[in-house]
């Protein structure tokens, strides 16, 4: 029983990181029909921005995080939207998919060439301790990851549902033409989606890197998991992506513990196929949302 609790708790914590990546992915997908194959790299990169500030410029921790957040907003938000996605709108289609794949190669190779190929330790402002919960052990960082992700996704949901800007963002994503007529600045709302995605990616990066280290290739598996989480949960609802992320994190651990290690990666994929074929709006999604 304590083993069960242990792997579920750990899975929730890992899943919360997946959820952050998945939420951003879903936002960008909705806002600009962009399936971002570089999403995993978007989570990998901000940690290196912080490392550059801390180790190369000799800045303190908080300044490093602030710098990384700003750099992410500028490069993963503004530049990605302005230089890659915008010129290919409104109907990016496959060339846009290919372009995001190339972006993923570019980010990986740049980090490897200009910072290093080896995994790097990453500082955390949080203490190292652990807590006992009914026979299972959870580290303070894991617990913080989980709560912080829940808070961020909760806050984001409130923002999208309760604020004027948030509602405009949703309207712009669901039917840009109608939104335009109603006086919504669709281009600006789309930009916001990209900025929110960049901020979420940076935040996920700060949370994940102290435990899982910073490495140029970290995005490879993370990106795929983010897709799966977003689709399984339901990409047109933010909380869908959250649930998807947590579900994938927990299932992965349960399968590895009780069923098979060799095929632990298979279950999320099977789930993905099943959801797409029989419930394409996702477990928590609404059927009315825009289908892609």
């Amino acid at each position: 029983m304590s083993q069960f609790l242990q792997v579920v708790l750990s899975g929730l914590s890992t899943g919360s990181i997946y959820a952050l990546a998945a939420v951003g992915f879903a936002l960008v997908w909705q806002a600009a029909q962009t399936v971002n194959f570089a999403q995993g790299e978007f989570v990998m990169l901000p940690a290196f921005f912080a490392l550059v500030a801390i180790h190369w410029f000799g800045w303190p921790l908080w300044a490093g995080f602030a710098f990384a957040m700003l750099a992410s907003l500028a490069i993963l938000g503004l530049a990605f939207k302005g230089l890659v996605v915008q010129p290919m709108m409104p109907d990016g289609g496959l060339p846009l998919v290919i372009a995001t794949m190339a972006v993923s190669i570019l980010l990986k190779e740049s980090v490897k060439t200009f910072y290093g190929a080896e995994a790097q330790p990453f500082p955390s402002p949080l203490p190292d301790g652990t807590l006992q919960i009914g026979g299972a052990v959870i580290s303070i960082r894991d617990l913080f990851d989980l709560l912080a992700s829940l808070a961020v996704v909760g806050g984001l949901t409130l923002f999208l549902d309760r604020t004027r800007t948030g509602r405009q963002m949703q309207a712009a994503a669901q039917s840009p033409a109608v939104a335009e007529i109603l006086g919504v600045d669709v281009a600006r709302m789309t930009l916001y989606a990209f900025l929110v995605n960049a901020a979420l990616a940076a935040f996920a990066s700060f949370l994940v890197s102290p435990t899982y280290l910073a490495k140029f290739s970290n995005g490879e598996s993370l990106g795929l998991v983010a897709f799966i989480a977003a689709i399984v949960g339901g990409f047109n609802r933010i909380r869908g992506a959250l649930v998807g992320g947590l579900l994938v994190g927990v299932l992965d651990n349960l399968v590895a513990t009780y069923v098979t290690q060799e095929y632990r990666a298979a279950l999320p994929l099977v789930l993905l196929i099943a959801v797409i074929l029989w419930r394409p709006q996702g477990l928590l999604g609404d059927a009315e949302g825009r289908t892609v």
């Binding site: 890659v84 060339p95 372009a99 794949m101 190779e109 740049s110 060439t113």
Partner: peptide, 15 residues
């Protein structure tokens, strides 16, 4: 930097 150049080329071509 060949993979970087390659990636930039593909992005530019697609855009």
């Amino acid at each position: 930097y060949y993979l970087i150049v390659y990636a930039l080329f593909v992005i530019a071509l697609m855009v």
